[in-house]
């Protein structure tokens, strides 16, 4: 029962029942990106409004389990209004927390940013999701929205670099 209560913390269930930033944004100007978890059929749609390098607004729709939905809700609250490079930094920190082994000792290639070990306490509400790591199958649920967010931001970056 303790492990379960660690997984389903009150704050997680609160975000599951009352998801923040739920809805849609008009496309364009917003950018729309989808994420799927083929294992369980969960799906997420994120609408991103990036202006002058800042994630001014985002909305989330779709459906899924308590972990994927609450993670998406907490993510939306954490990244809204942040400069895009800070969003990327937060994504890396979150995904580092969601790694079973923790970050590699000397992280990879020179062009790949080094991932610092993350103290969940510094992640605010998001730290509540660290209990998910004990349930490896659910890590995909917790990272679904984050992967979609990264994909969306990358698509926007490519689009603006190409002058679109």
């Amino acid at each position: 029962m303790n492990e379960l209560e660690d997984l389903y913390r009150e704050i997680i269930l609160d975000h599951y029942r009352s998801p923040r930033n739920r809805g849609e944004l008009p496309v364009p100007p917003a950018h729309r990106v989808e994420g799927f978890n083929p294992l369980c059929g969960d799906e997420i749609v994120i609408f991103l409004d990036v202006r002058d390098g800042v994630l001014e607004d985002l909305k989330i729709s779709g459906r899924g389990c308590s972990i994927s939905q609450s993670s998406a809700s907490m993510m939306s609250a954490a990244v809204k209004g942040l400069p895009v490079d800070e969003v990327h930094r937060l994504v890396r920190s979150f995904k580092s927390m969601m790694t079973i082994e923790g970050p590699p000792a000397n992280a990879g290639a020179p062009d790949e940013p080094t991932v610092e070990p993350v103290d969940p306490a510094t992640l605010g509400e998001l730290g509540a999701l660290q209990g998910v790591v004990k349930f490896p199958v659910r890590i995909k649920c917790a990272t679904l929205a984050w992967n979609a967010l990264t994909q969306g931001l990358d698509e926007i970056a490519v689009g603006s670099a190409g002058g679109a």
């Binding site: 899924g64 308590s66 659910r138």
Partner: peptide
């Protein structure tokens, strides 16, 4: 409660059930 959460909680009592689309997404 989402099926994944149902199955996760049941697993803590040693109960094995399946949660998901059961490889029948059109039926879902």
């Amino acid at each position: 409660v989402h099926p994944h959460d149902v199955a996760q909680v049941l697993d803590q009592s040693g109960i094995c059930v399946r949660a998901g689309h059961h490889c029948a997404k059109p039926l879902m």
